[in-house]
């Protein structure tokens, strides 16, 4: 047998030289990138400003001062723009769940689903166990639903009509304002759930 042939491919790699080259490449690229960013017109600040947070937890801390239902009222006002809400995470910033993610949580009964659609739509069909929480009528639903959500770290999943609907996003933002730390949006929502032939409930009971 040829002993050279039997040697593993990894043994032929000059590791020290490779790591040194990789390190040099990384340092050069990082240096160039920071320099480019400094002089580039669309460059971004490298230090996170205190007033601009990128993580949910930071946003929560920032908005903990809002209490009561004032935040809800602001969000629930149909005439108010979304930007008027105290917390305004866009869809691409909000933690989202896929259909499979929502289904696995449904199976594990580990999360609470919140149906942000109208009461009529909820009655026509909803995810079993989902609480009715019409996002456009906070004043009515907040006192009914919030007392059931005592654990602020409980995973809450808001959903509505799918891609054409932002009710779940508004509801999620409002919940974050209320101090809930683990809020997600199932953006595929009711249409995806129904299309997958997953269990549904009808009527006004969860």
């Amino acid at each position: 047998m040829n002993s050279k042939r039997s040697a593993s491919p990894a043994s032929s790699i000059p590791w020290k030289k490779s790591l040194l080259e990789a390190w040099n490449l990384f340092v050069f690229a990082a240096f160039f990138a920071v320099l480019f960013n400094t002089f580039y017109s669309d460059g971004i600040p490298l230090k996170v400003e205190q007033t601009k947070s990128y993580h949910l937890q930071d946003l929560l801390k920032k908005n903990q001062t809002s209490s009561g239902y004032a935040g809800w009222k602001t969000v629930s006002s149909k005439s108010a723009s979304v930007s008027a809400t105290p917390t305004n995470l866009a869809l691409d910033q909000m933690p989202r769940l896929s259909l499979l993610g929502a289904k696995s949580r449904f199976d594990q009964k580990s999360s609470i689903f919140l149906d942000a659609r109208s009461p009529e739509e909820y009655a026509e069909g909803h995810i079993p166990g989902a609480l009715e929480f019409y996002a456009d009528d906070f004043e009515k639903f907040a006192p009914l639903v919030l007392p059931q959500l005592k654990d602020k770290n409980q995973e809450l999943i808001a959903y509505c009509h799918g891609s054409s609907c932002e009710l779940s996003l508004h509801l999620a933002n409002a919940l974050i304002d209320q101090g809930y730390t683990n809020v997600k949006v199932f953006f595929g929502g009711w249409p995806e759930w129904k299309k997958a032939n997953y269990p549904i409930n009808k009527g006004d009971q969860p």
Partner: peptide, 8 residues
């Protein structure tokens, strides 16, 4: 420096 680049 292709080997270092391959490592990256």
């Amino acid at each position: 420096q292709w080997r270092g680049a391959a490592f990256v």
